[in-house]
Design a protein around this nucleic acid. Structure first.
Lengths: 196, 196
DNA sequence: TACTGTACCGGAGGGTCCCTCCGTTTCGTC
DNA sequence: GACGAAACGGAGGGACCCTCCGGTACAGTA
């Protein structure tokens, strides 16, 4: 989890023990509250839940986006490992499809938090400063490349587009009456379009 | 524009002249402010811009969604007429594609307001009470049906899915570095998947 | 035109949230 | 234990949401 430095993974001086503890608490509270109310949940509620003053929350996470990104980083890491695992599959097209579908499922979890966070990161200049996001992209690109080399997936596609689309589907079907069914149909449509 | 009844198009008793005037002002203000700040703009700012008390705004539009929907109704109507026009095209697949692409373009306008509004409506039970939205759906369904009958578009698709996806693309590429290019690529991918 | 009932106006007010600032507390080190 | 620095936490100013109700002005009637 690395709560050693609050926001980013810079030079990183060592934090005091209480600071480390509080950052972890805020992160846990944020995970809880975001999960309940989406990424526009009250930061004061998060601080309350974490048993921490609002000032402390702001010191560690100077704005909402930083906090969302921090909460989201674990998810990113998990997706990256999952991608690495799928890279060894002997059906590259299926591996890509599986990975993307999992991304979509994930993105509509947490009341759209994951999708929002992902799209936010995609909007910044290539994931901005987030190495976790870069890693995810790299794995995705590899999965896509393998699928393309196997000849079953269109060559003129970029992972950035696919991730964005997959997250868009997750987001747009977030509150749909038949969410699972609809997102699956849309996903299939996308995969259909992806075939070469 | 029909500001005769503020929220919906029910039995509609006649409003007093000042009430009608104020509703129109609020609507105009809302269009302005939503356009600048997206659909989570301040309602008080809208009231200020309209030169109207906040209480007046709330009487005519009891909550934010109603106001967004009212602002959005014109757009909906325009899209519906455009669809009717395209129904006479002799290339049904191209007509569908054109119409959907225009929907997408529209949906990323107004800082995502249109897409949010559309998705909101799709989430309610079949457009809820909005006849404008129902009309849009009906036209879209006809366009799709014609394209399907021409044999160039998959038969197992519903207009609801397509509208949702198209709006999702608009929404997800809203702040993208290369918005137009990216949304076009994603749209093409979708259309590719739509071919039978 | 003056009158009157009422539909409508508008803003004060209580609640929530955002974010900053700074006096106080706690940690780590000597 | 003492001390400097790091971190805490909550008060406070500003913005927003939405409701409520005293006041205003419209639209019929005489």
């Amino acid at each position: 989890m690395d709560t050693g430095a609050g926001t980013a993974q810079q030079p990183e001086r060592r934090l005091r023990a209480d600071a480390r503890r509080n950052a972890a608490r805020v992160l846990a509270g944020a995970r809880e509250v975001f999960g309940e109310s989406g990424s526009d949940a009250s930061l004061e509620e998060i601080a309350r839940r974490a048993g921490v003053g609002i000032g402390t929350l702001y010191r560690h996470f100077p704005n909402r986006d930083v906090l969302v990104e921090a909460v989201f980083r674990e998810t990113l890491d998990a997706a990256t490992s999952r991608g690495e695992q799928l890279l060894t599959s002997d059906d590259p097209a299926a591996a890509l499809a599986t990975w993307l579908r999992e991304q979509m499922r994930q993105s509509s979890a947490c009341r759209g938090l994951a999708a929002e966070a992902m799209i936010m990161m995609l909007d910044e200049q290539g994931c901005g400063s987030s190495t976790a996001c870069d890693a995810l992209h790299a794995i995705g690109a590899k999965l896509l490349e393998r699928a393309q080399q196997s000849g079953t997936v269109r060559a003129d596609t970029e992972i950035d587009d696919l991730l964005r689309l997959v997250n868009a589907i997750g987001l747009a079907t977030e509150d749909a009456p038949d969410r699972a069914g609809q997102s699956d149909r849309l996903f299939d449509l996308m995969m259909q379009g992806l075939r070469s």
